[in-house]
Amino acid sequence: MPELPFPLPPLPTAPQVVFIMIAVLAVIGSLTVVLARNLFHSALGLVAAFFGAAGVYIVAEAEFIGVSQVLVYVGAISTLITFAIMLTRGMMFGATSPRNRQSGTAAIITALTFVVLVALMRGIPWPQAGEPITDGQAIIAGLGFAFVNQYVIPFLLLAMLLLVALAGAIMLARDRK
C-alpha cells in the first residue's frame, strides 16, 4: 500500500453518523418553523426540531431526558401550540408571510447570537468522551434520589409552580360567561 502524503481524516464513528442525521433533521425542522408560509407547517417543523433535540440527548446517552423531551414537547406542548393556532381564527386564513418589518433586526440578532455561541463553544474546555455508560438505570435512580434528598426544596417548589400554572390555566382558558 503506497504511503499517502497526508493522513486520511478518521472515518466517522456510528454515533457520529447518527448525530449528523439527527442534526440535519433538527436544522430542517427549525428552518421550516421560520420560513413556512402556513402556520400549521411551522408547527410541524417545530415537532421535527423537538425530535431532533430528543435524538441529540439520546446520542449523548441521556436517554431519560430524551424520552421526557418527546413526552412533554412532542406530546403536550406541540399539541397545545396546534390548539392555540386553531383557536386564533385570524391566523388560520390563507398564507401568512414569514417576513415582516422586524425580520432584518431578527436576522442580525440571530447572527450575533450564533457568533457568541460559537465563541463560547470554542472557549470551553470540553470533557473528553469517557467510557460508554453501562448502567443507565443507576443514573435514573440517582436522579430520583436527588429529587427527594438534596433538591427536595426545589422539588416541592416545582409542585407549587405546577399548581399555580394549573390555576392560571383555568383563569385563561375558561369560557367567559
Binding site: E63, V67, V70, L71, V74, G75, T79, G136, Q137
Partner: peptide, 15 residues
C-alpha cells in the same frame, strides 16, 4: 432503561 416511558412517549406520535 426507560422502557415504560418510551412506550408512553410513542403515544405522542399517534396524537
Amino acid at each position: 432503561n426507560v422502557g415504560v416511558l418510551y412506550l408512553v412517549a410513542l403515544g405522542s406520535i399517534g396524537i
